[in-house]
Design a protein around this nucleic acid. Structure first.
Lengths: 210, 210
DNA sequence: AATAATTTGTTGCTTTTGCAACAGAAAAAG
DNA sequence: CTTTTTCTGTTGCAAAAGCAACAAATTATT
């Protein structure tokens, strides 16, 4: 199974091959889409970055997923079971392809290349999503803020193949992503520094262990 | 998109159409499979129930997923990124179909009905898995034990279409599933009773709100 | 360049959660 | 049927996390 599905070349080759696919631009903090109603929509972020965010009744914000270039999102990947608000918000200027589907598995009526390829590669696309979700679950099941932070840093570190990296979002957002209190997280970051596990300057982290 | 993929009739119709598919039995507490090595394996639980369990370095046990009849599992659904032990353990006597694949998207070399159908329905199967994972994430992002319990009870309640239901696993296991300390969870269950939110006799729960 | 808005960093206090330990109930094994 | 094992329910205490509030720094906006 090809786990290295190349969204970039897919987009470049087929983006314009179907007139049903719409491209839209969003500026910072705009809502790209919501998962409240049932929309048969698959979205691909072609530039910028965005978050899938949930606001619960207590006013807590959770960053459910973070999207960067060529990530796919939409209700295809998320059968809505909750009564909470689920929004995709642009973190910066974003370009997004919207693909409205009839039946995700079949080609669209126009029989265009875009849909044909997408239908073919969808299982893989979804499997990648599953991998992300599983990593997220692994993080969230860690019992302490310290373990969540270290778990997250390890992930980012192995993704960038480096012990030094910049966080893809602000510390405020990181707390919402790890689902912990921001000030408690800041305290733990300080302790991690004091205990010699990490170095931290702004949002640049260096892992000092292993 | 047909979200009601019927695994039961799929199994009944095609189980014996491919000699590559193996059926094995397991007794309570036996390890059905592990996710340590890369095995090209998709498993379907045809009877009994089992858990995907992770043991971390601190000795904490987490129930990552709970499987009952006709649930599918295996590394297809879980690109292993962790260095922790990931096991599927039988909770009771289980029967499991093992399907070793070459390429999940293509038919097997024998061109049998089983693989043909499975390849066709796989996207749907995976989407169901994604839904489960998202529900799990929603539970885990809740900030307190109380909210995790209520969130979980709501899920089970809506699945059984009843305010009264038996928990699918023991309270010890529930704590490992919600990723919280058992005694703290027991305390919170008692408080939920005292505060009139739930009724509880053994592992039978009744929701008293709404 | 000046002002407004957001994010970071910090702290004291409160609440929640985890840990350890144990007795009784229930379930499994012999 | 008896013994052993696991699970439930409970508690006191310790540790961790959440909350609230604020100043300083950074980043956007006009």
């Amino acid at each position: 199974m090809n786990v290295n599905f190349d969204m970039k070349s897919f987009i470049n080759n087929f983006e314009n091959s179907c007139h049903k696919v719409q491209k839209k631009s969003f500026s910072k903090n705009e809502v790209i889409t919501s998962y409240i109603q049932k929309r048969n929509q698959l979205c691909i972020l072609t530039s910028g970055n965005a978050d899938l965010v949930r606001y619960d009744l207590n006013g807590n914000r959770t960053i459910v997923e973070h999207f960067s270039q060529y990530d796919a999102f939409g209700e295809v990947f998320y059968a809505v079971t909750t009564n909470n608000e689920l929004l995709v918000e642009a973190r910066e200027k974003c370009e997004v392809l919207f693909y409205i589907y009839d039946d995700i598995r079949n080609k669209c009526r126009n029989n265009c290349k875009f849909h044909q390829m997408l239908a073919e590669d969808l299982p893989e696309l979804i499997l990648n999503k599953v991998t992300d979700l599983n990593m997220r679950i692994e993080l969230l099941t860690k019992r302490s803020i310290r373990d969540k932070l270290l778990g997250y840093f390890n992930l980012v570190s192995s993704r960038y193949l480096s012990k030094s990296f910049s966080l893809p979002f602000s510390l405020t957002d990181l707390a919402d992503y790890l689902s912990v209190d921001r000030s408690a997280m800041m305290r733990e970051l300080k302790l991690l520094k004091e205990d010699g596990f990490i170095d931290k300057t702004g949002n640049k982290i260096t892992l000092l262990y292993e």
